[in-house]
Amino acid sequence: MNAAPNDSREESVSAARARQKHDQEDFEARLDEHRGIVFKLANAYCRAREERDHLVQEICLQLWRAFPRYDPERRFSTWMYRVALNTAISFARTRQARERRSVPLDESLVPATSEPVRASVERVGQLYRVMDGLGELERALLLLYLEEHSYRDIAEVLGISETNVGTKLNRLKLKIRRELAPQEEAQDGTR
């Protein structure tokens, strides 16, 4: 008598398991495809290696938790930037993270001196100095711009208008030009 309800319960359980497995595989494939986003974002907000690893874990965890709410109609990368940025900014806003921001950068990220790229070493150093001087949201704007996203994409990730993105990027460009000019003059002077 109870065989039919039991069968249907087992069917629904196995269907749920299959769905979960499919979701996990889907998530893994998408995460693998866009893993660079996680690495770059974590590095933009945490310079010390241990902190950065912790942030990568936190981002992955939040991505996995938020994945059931992901709307497949929208682009995965946009959603991923939102989750990763929200996690990274919240992480960086904690006092401890603020204090550790002054930790020397992970040297493995600076090109080795044996490479014929002195200019590249300088540029990486300058980029880090620029990033350290920005607020968390300005930093998000900068890294989305560096990732070559359109104003429209940046506006969608951040939730501000395209006009606002344009205005803020113009200001950021001016600020960076002003900040980098004296440094470049000093470097030219020492050469």
Partner: peptide
């Protein structure tokens, strides 16, 4: 600075180690 940003991105991709471990665990 985009060149510098791309340099960092490539190095991060090659670094693996703990970062990839976190992804695997996630």
């Amino acid at each position: 600075l985009k060149t510098a940003w791309n340099d960092i991105g490539q190095r991060l991709e090659r670094m693996d180690g703990a970062l990839r471990q976190s992804l695997r665990e996630a």
